[in-house]
Structure formats: C-alpha cells, structure tokens
Computed example of a mutant assay.
Amino acid sequence: MDPAAWDARYGEAGRVWSAEPSRFLVETFSALPAGSVLDVGTGEGRHATWLASRGWTVTAVDFSAEAIRKARELQRDHAPATVGRIEWVRADVVAEPPRPAAYDAVVVLYLHLPAQHRRQVLRGAAEALAPGGTLLVVGHDSANLAEGVGGPQDPAVLFTAGDVVEDLAGAHVRILRAERVARPVGDDGAAALDAVVVARRP
C-alpha cells in the first residue's frame, strides 16, 4: 500500500470510481435502522455519502489525502445536507485499528490488501462492532480474474467469501451471508464477480 501512488491516482481530474453506492450496500443497509457506521477505506466517499444521506453518522477513513479531498467534494456537491454527519479521517487502516465496540455497523467495500493485512483489517472491523452491529465486506472475487471483468489484476489481493469467513473465525460474529455474486457492469451482459459477506455481532 502506497499513499503517494493513491494520491497521484486520486489527484487526476475526474472521478476514479462511480459516484453511485455499491448495490450490496444498498441491499444490506436499506433495511437497517440508522446509527453509527465506520467506512474502512472510503476512497472518494460514495458509500459514506450515501449512508449519511440515509441518516447514519459516519466515520470515513482512508490513507489518501486526495481521496479525502474528493470525498468532501462529493458530499458537498451531491449531499450538502449531510455536511457535519461524516467525519473524514486520514489514517492507515492497517496500522491504526478502530476502537472496539464503537459502531453499529462497519463496511469494508472493495478494499484489496494482501491476505495478512486483509485478515488484520477484517478482525479489527469485527471487533469495532457494538452488540447487534452489522459488518458488510465486499470485494472482487478471486475468480474474477479468469471469469469476470475489471477489478485488480493481482491475485494476491483478491479473495473469496470463504476467505473472509476464515478471516472472521473466532471474531464473535455470526455469518448471515457469504457468497460469490455476478454483478452486471455493462449493456453487453459482462459481469464482475464479487465476494459478499454479511456478519453480525450477537
């Protein structure tokens, strides 16, 4: 992970990612009562902004200053009423784990790390849940390299739902959903393959 490289990427004109939230975030959180949520690796802030617009109080963390700058712009331009509802935090999510039992929900969306760091971040994410809290993890599935489109091309940072379940073993969460999902990405029928895991702390 190189903050300078991501600063350079996010520093280019235009957006790196879509401004629309992940469909899996919408599916999972539309039925949940709003509370406090931690967005791990927020990037340009599309998920944090969507959550804030639904009444959540958001802590959004990324190690790229340029990502945080663009995230603030997205919030200001697309959801000005949410200003003050998101705390934008520049921090390394690997080196700086969140406070235990501090959030009603945690989302880790398309954060791709080597396995050791991924496990560390996901364990910290699970520990950050208050009782009854929900964890959503989504990323490009390992099978996406051969069977899907887009996403990282380094197999070392891809994972399966099963990998996430193993990462969370012993973390005192109950797995509610763990599957590979085909996500349409174009009008030609092409799809990306995503690993999707939903867990809850009892």
Rank of each mutant, 00 (worst) to 15 (best):
Q75T: 10
P98D: 11
Y103C: 09
L74Y: 12
V61Q: 03
E166V: 10
R174G: 11
L38V: 00
G133D: 04
T42C: 15
A115E: 15
P184Q: 04
D7G: 02
F29E: 04
S142N: 06
I68V: 15
G162F: 05
L111F: 10
V106I: 03
T134D: 08
A67S: 06
V37N: 04
P184F: 09
G162K: 08
A60L: 07
V94P: 05
A195D: 03
A34C: 01
V108K: 09
A178Q: 05
V58N: 00
G133P: 10
T134K: 05
G133F: 06
A169S: 12
P21I: 00
V185M: 07
V58M: 07
R90M: 12
E166W: 05
A13D: 15
V40F: 04
G151Q: 00
V94Y: 00
H172L: 10
A191E: 15
V108G: 00
G148K: 06
A19V: 13
L122S: 01
R174W: 11
G150K: 14
Y10G: 02
A125E: 02
D187I: 02
E66K: 13
R69F: 01
S53L: 09
Q75V: 09
R119D: 11
P184W: 05
V137T: 10
S30N: 05
L109S: 10
V165Q: 05
Y110T: 03
A182R: 08
E166Y: 04
K70P: 09
T49W: 01
R99M: 07
P131R: 09
S18W: 07
G150H: 12
D141L: 07
E166D: 15
V107R: 02
G132L: 14
E179I: 09
A101G: 12
H140T: 04
R85F: 01
R180G: 11
E127C: 10
D167W: 05
E73M: 13
S22F: 08
P114W: 11
V16M: 15
A128M: 02
A95Y: 12
L176F: 02
V198P: 01
R15S: 15
W17T: 13
R54Q: 15
R23D: 08
A71L: 14
R200I: 13
L145Y: 01
D2M: 08
E44R: 03
M1L: 12
G162V: 10
V108M: 02
L111S: 06
A195Q: 05
A65E: 15
S22K: 06
R183S: 14
A31Y: 03
H140R: 11
F63L: 14
A125D: 06
G133Y: 04
V83H: 07
P155C: 07
E20F: 03
P3M: 07
I68A: 09
Y10A: 02
W88H: 13
A125C: 06
A4S: 13
V94I: 14
S36W: 04
R200H: 11
G148T: 10
D167S: 05
T82D: 00
S142P: 01
R99D: 11
A126Y: 04
R118C: 10
P3T: 08
A79M: 01
W50L: 03
E44G: 01
L135F: 08
P202T: 13
Q153C: 01
P131L: 09
E179T: 10
V108E: 00
V138S: 03
